[in-house]
Simulated assay, not measured.
Amino acid sequence: MKTFTALGLATCLAGAVAFAPAAHAAEFTMKISHSAAPGDPRDQGAQKVAELLNNSKTCDIKVQVFPSDQLGGSETIWEQVQLGGVEVMIAPAANLVPYEPLMGILDLPYFWPASPEQLLEVYQSEAMDDLLKLPEAHGFIVPGVWHTGYKNWTSNKALHTPEDFKGLIVRVMPSKILHKQNELLGMQNVSMNFGDTYSALQSGTIGGQDNPIPLIYNMKFHEVQKYITMTNHGILDQVFAISKIFWDKLPEACHTEIRDAINEGGKVTYAANEKLITEDLEKIKASGTTIVELGPEEIAAIKNVLEPAVRDYYVELVGPKGQELVDGFEAEFKKMGIN
Rank of each mutant, 00 (worst) to 15 (best):
I291T: 04
E307F: 12
P308Y: 02
K285W: 06
I302M: 11
P296V: 11
I299A: 03
L325N: 03
F333C: 08
F333G: 04
T289A: 13
L325V: 11
D280A: 07
I299V: 15
F329W: 09
A300K: 14
E324S: 09
V318K: 02
P308H: 03
A271I: 08
R311T: 15
A301P: 10
N273L: 15
T278C: 06
E330I: 09
Q323P: 09
A300R: 05
A309P: 03
G328V: 10
K285I: 08
E274P: 03
E307G: 07
K321C: 05
Y314S: 07
D327E: 13
E332I: 07
E274G: 02
A301M: 10
L317G: 00
K335L: 12
K285S: 10
A272N: 05
E293S: 15
V305C: 08
L317A: 09
E324M: 07
Y313T: 08
G322Q: 00
P320A: 09
D280I: 04
K334E: 15
D327H: 05
A300T: 11
L281C: 02
S287A: 15
L294F: 05
G288H: 04
K335P: 07
Y313N: 06
K321V: 09
P320H: 05
N273R: 11
P296S: 07
V310G: 01
A301E: 12
E279K: 13
E274Y: 12
E307L: 06
L317R: 12
K275S: 15
L317I: 03
Q323C: 08
E330A: 06
T289H: 01
A301F: 07
G322I: 02
K303R: 15
G295V: 13
L306P: 02
D327C: 08
G328L: 07
E324G: 08
R311S: 12
E279D: 15
I291A: 04
L306W: 00
A301S: 13
Q323E: 09
G319E: 01
K283V: 01
D312W: 08
G322K: 02
R311E: 14
D280E: 14
A286M: 00
L317F: 13
D280C: 06
E316F: 08
A331H: 09
E298F: 11
G319Q: 01
A301T: 10
G319D: 00
A272H: 03
P320L: 09
V305R: 04
A286T: 02
G328M: 05
E332A: 12
D312L: 05
A272E: 07
E297C: 04
A271Q: 14
E282T: 11
I284A: 02
A300G: 08
E316H: 13
V292E: 01
N273V: 10
K334A: 14
E316M: 09
I291L: 13
A271T: 13
E298N: 05
G319V: 04
A301Y: 06
E332F: 06
E282A: 15
L294Q: 02
L325Y: 05
D280L: 04
N273Y: 14
A301L: 07
K285R: 13
V326F: 07
F333S: 06
G322R: 00
P320V: 10
A271E: 14
N273Q: 15
E282N: 14
D280P: 04
F333L: 08
E274R: 12
D312F: 09
I302S: 00
K303N: 10
K334Q: 15
I299S: 00
V310S: 01
T289C: 12
P308R: 00
N273K: 07
V318E: 00
